[in-house]
Design a binder for these strands. Structure first.
Length: 885
DNA sequence: CGTATCACG
DNA sequence: ACGTACGTGATACGT
């Protein structure tokens, strides 16, 4: 290692990168005063890694001085048209400088010059003085500075990871030497810095030309050797542009930088200043890293101490909870149906009782308080708490506040299952995350140290009590109190009871299917090996790709990031000329069913009750739908005959009982008809028409006597789906295998025929722009920050979600309302509601209740909300989930 | 731990 | 010109 090592950092560009790398977590990174800290956090992460890796003797962070530089004098529009820096980022720069000062790192900016030029100049001086230099930047243009003594580390997508550009690596990666980077930029220009280059020359042609002729000047010396006519014309016409662009791209290595290398000596941080800074920013993790030994945690973490009392059988009677308390049941893992209990905390008004012995909860006065509707409980994740207590024989009642639900409703991105995280998102910093206290992944354990564990529990309870008012005020402000009180909170207990009920799965049936599938798999496997001429792992896309496209020489239809695509669409195209493709598809289908459904389900059948108990995640999706895990019972096969057979194993829990199911037909299109007020679409639903056929008549302009063929109905159905998903001509064309132009004509005609729908899509996008979010009929919100993104993809995605979320989310609202009313409606029956699959509810009940359910369930479902058009519900029942008729 | 694939609405 | 359908979860592979 060289004796003198210089670390040079491009301050603006790294901060920018850090800001966007952590942009999705913008909400999580704010300090007590509401200052955003994501860029500072990311920058500091980068600093820690680079300081460790480079171990520099000298450090400098260079910043841009302002908009006007010598380059803007050369070219007025340099960096013109750039959107203003986000205020959430600009506000962080002063603090970034404060961080650097505390770390003992020099910062520097120079009027009329950019950070690049300071770096280029300093790097050159360092080279002359025999330094080894590392430049850190987010901007690949700086790789022009790479040479034997200087490496350019360009930060990758995350901030702490960098790609190190040595001259050899520059050539490998970009196809030219570091010195030639500026020639490339000269020819191709730079969109983000807003200078033009030569028309028609992109990265590919630029590299070709520079490879051949060495430099921009070289290209023009040999201009007559260029045979491509158009290219030559453009080169001649844009000669001035090319020279100017090259100049603009060239980093000035002789800028009047006043700092000498001696000014940059790095002696490490001022620890006191750094601790103070981390505290100001609320950087807990960084603080922890600083406190190696000796220091008391509270001084470092900024956490106030907290008092608590350990409960025992002897002091139980001293508890006084009054009419309201906070409660947190700690479990040793995610699956609350199975995992061990770890302890609990209960209390109010800074009186916290804690214990590891959950059986104390079964005794007076705790059990009574937990079951008393008049003692209002504040919790975090009521469903988890309800199921956990149920295992102890306690029925939780009187829950008034669920912080997790409230937080999710306020912002669907705040869906962490960790109280500490959620608290931090709402600006409360007096509780650590479980990850901080218990560790992560395999290393996660409940601490054996009572003080550590109980302190954390007490802080959780205090956080629940503290945050309650704030979150409820926010709900009120958003007009979401009804959504919380009348939908999500009651829903959580309905779901808890469904999860506890579980659904019976016939393991013998599954095992029998499993052996049949194994035989089939063995047979197909042999056929495939014969066709391929060798044995290989069919389950490995990589090995499969080699066989199909290299050994067998089949045409490559699509590529993925890492190699050849072997997805269904590709194999279907290949099937015509290669029978192996058909067999692979068959193999895939069966092995999917075997591993995910036969083996997967067998693993989670509870040995005592022969049931599976899923967990519905109520605070995960961005639309308000539920999701189902461990196992996922919302994706049990139905579309293929082989897969559907799995449903034979889902049976009622008693002999003589039946499985009963009701589903909304086309609920999303009906919601669209309602929200868009489109008269034509509403008419179709009011008259009970087949909506896809009706759409087909309209977009294909069929006369009254013309027949809707299955094929045009299928196409119309795809267009209807497309509309719901936030249509694009490309997406539609891909889906039904037509040309993009054809797809565009379909969409145009669709919007002519359903003008209300067109207006709806435009209205939702506009709304998202104006208020930053869209809403469902029950005021569920989804924020769409990307709606104003300069990135086309991100913006387009946000626009499609703006159209889709109110539809999908309102449908989710509707079935939730139905489920809550359903519990009450069937309370006198033996029927039990078991599953929800987005637009479908599944029950088990004695055969003699079928007739009742057939009337009752659809009635509750279709009257859940009052829309401008009717809802339609269809019901089926049978001895297993497979045989519904 | 990320990627590809495929199961569902 | 950009490069796409919306919302999920589980499994196997390979780094």
């Amino acid at each position: 290692m060289a004796e003198k090592r210089l670390l040079l950092i491009d301050g603006n560009s790294v901060a920018f990168k850090a800001f966007f790398a952590l942009y999705n977590s913008l909400g999580r990174f704010t300090n007590g005063e509401g200052l955003h800290t994501n860029a500072i956090y990311g920058f500091n992460t980068m600093l820690e890694t680079m300081l460790k890796n480079v171990d520099p003797t000298h450090v400098l962070v260079a910043f841009d001085a302002g908009k006007v530089t010598f380059r803007t004098k050369m070219y007025d529009d340099y960096k013109g048209g750039r959107a203003k820096t986000a205020p959430e980022l600009s506000e962080q720069f002063p603090y970034l400088k404060k961080l650097l000062a505390a770390r003992g790192i020099k910062t520097y900016e120079l009027k009329n010059y950019e950070a690049d030029d300071i770096i280029g100049t300093t790097a050159k001086r360092a080279e002359d003085a025999g330094f080894a230099t590392t430049i850190v930047t987010g901007d690949r243009d700086l790789t022009q500075l790479a040479n034997d003594q200087t490496t350019v580390a360009v930060s990758k997508k995350g901030v702490s990871e960098v790609e190190r550009y040595t001259p050899a690596y520059v050539t490998e990666k970009m196809g030219v030497t570091p010195e030639q980077i500026i020639d490339i930029k000269g020819l191709q220009g730079d969109n983000s810095d807003n200078y033009p280059g030569v028309t028609g020359v992109g990265p590919k042609r630029a590299v070709d030309l520079i490879d051949k002729y060495g430099s921009v000047e070289g290209v023009y010396e040999h201009i007559d050797d260029i045979t491509a006519k158009k290219l030559k014309e453009h080169l001649i016409a844009d000669h001035d542009n090319a020279l100017l662009s090259k100049k603009l791209a060239t980093i000035d290595r002789n800028a009047p930088v006043e700092l000498t290398l001696d000014d940059l000596v790095y002696q490490g941080p001022d620890t006191d200043a750094l601790v103070a800074f981390y505290q100001e920013m609320g950087f807990r993790t960084f603080l922890k890293k600083l406190s190696v030994d000796g220091e008391t945690p509270s001084a470092v973490t900024g956490l106030q101490p907290i008092d608590y009392t350990e409960l025992t059988a002897d002091n139980l009677d001293q508890i006084n909870l009054g009419d309201s308390c906070a409660f947190y049941l700690e479990l040793d893992g995610d699956n609350y149906h199975l995992v061990d209990f770890a302890g609990f905390v209960i209390g109010t008004d800074d009186q916290w009782w804690v214990s590891r012995d959950v059986h104390l909860l079964e005794q007076a006065p705790l059990k009574a308080a937990l079951e008393d509707t008049k003692v209002s409980k504040q919790v975090f994740d009521a469903k988890r708490t309800y199921v956990g207590l149920n295992r102890l024989g306690i029925t939780l009642r009187g829950v008034d506040g669920d912080l997790l639900l409230a937080s999710y409703l306020l912002n669907t991105y705040d869906n962490s299952n960790d109280l500490g995280r959620v608290a931090a998102e709402h600006g409360y910093d007096q509780v650590e995350t479980d990850e901080d206290v218990y560790g992560r992944g395999a290393k996660r354990t409940i601490p054996t140290d009572d003080t550590v564990f109980f302190t954390h529990l007490a802080r959780k309870a205090r956080a629940i009590e503290h945050l309650r008012t704030q979150l409820f005020n926010d709900l009120e402000e958003n007009d979401q109190v009804k959504l919380y009180r009348e939908i999500e909170l009651p829903m959580t207990f309905v779901l808890a009871r469904m999860e506890i009920a579980g659904i019976t799965v016939d393991a013998d049936e599954l095992r029998a299917m499993g052996s049949k599938f194994s035989e089939q798999l063995a047979e197909i496997e042999q056929t495939i090996y014969n066709e391929a001429g060798e044995e290989f792992n069919i389950g490995s896309p990589k090995q499969l790709g080699k066989i199909l496209f290299e050994k067998m020489g089949l045409p490559v239809i699509k590529k993925t990031k890492t190699g050849y695509s072997t997805a269904v669409g590709v194999l279907e195209k290949l099937a015509a000329e290669a029978p192996i493709a058909e067999n692979i598809l068959k193999y895939r289908k069966i092995s999917k069913i075997q591993s995910t459904y036969v083996e997967g389900l067998l693993k989670v059948i509870h040995p005592d009750d022969h049931k599976v108990h899923t967990r519905y995640l109520q605070t995960l999706t961005q639309t308000g739908r539920l999701s189902s895990v461990d196992p996922n019972l919302q994706n049990i096969p139905v579309r293929s005959a082989e897969g559907k057979a799995i449903r034979k194993a889902f049976v009622p829990r008693h002999k003589g009982w039946q499985i009963f199911s009701s589903d909304y037909s086309q609920i999303e299109l009906r919601v669209l008809a309602h929200m868009s007020h489109d008269e034509n679409m509403q008419e179709a639903f009011r008259e009970g028409q087949d909506i896809h056929a009706a759409t087909a008549r309209r977009i294909f302009k069929l006369g009254p006597d013309e027949e809707v063929t299955p094929n045009i109905r299928r196409q119309a159905k795809a267009v209807n789906f497309g509309i719901v998903y936030g249509i694009s001509d490309f997406g539609l064309s891909q889906n039904i295998g037509i040309s993009r132009q054809q797809a565009k004509r379909f969409i145009d005609t669709y919007f002519q025929e359903y003008p209300g729908v067109k207006a709806y899509t435009e209205r939702m996008v506009q709304l998202a722009h104006d208020q930053g979010y869209v809403e469902t009929i029950a005021h569920r919100r989804r924020y769409l920050p990307d709606i104003n993104s300069r990135n086309f993809n991100q913006r387009s995605f946000a626009e499609r979600t703006a159209m889709n979320t109110p539809i999908q989310g309102s449908a989710a609202d509707i079935i939730k309302i139905a489920m809550i009313r359903m519990e009450d409606a069937i309370k006198d029956l033996q029927a039990t509601m078991l599953l929800q699959v987005h637009d479908e509810l599944i029950f088990e009940a004695p055969a003699e209740e079928m007739a009742t359910l057939e009337k009752l369930v659809p009635k509750i479902m279709d009257s859940a909300v009052d829309l401008e058009i009717p809802l339609n519900v269809e019901s089926h029942y049978g001895p297993t989930w497979f045989d519904l008729k």
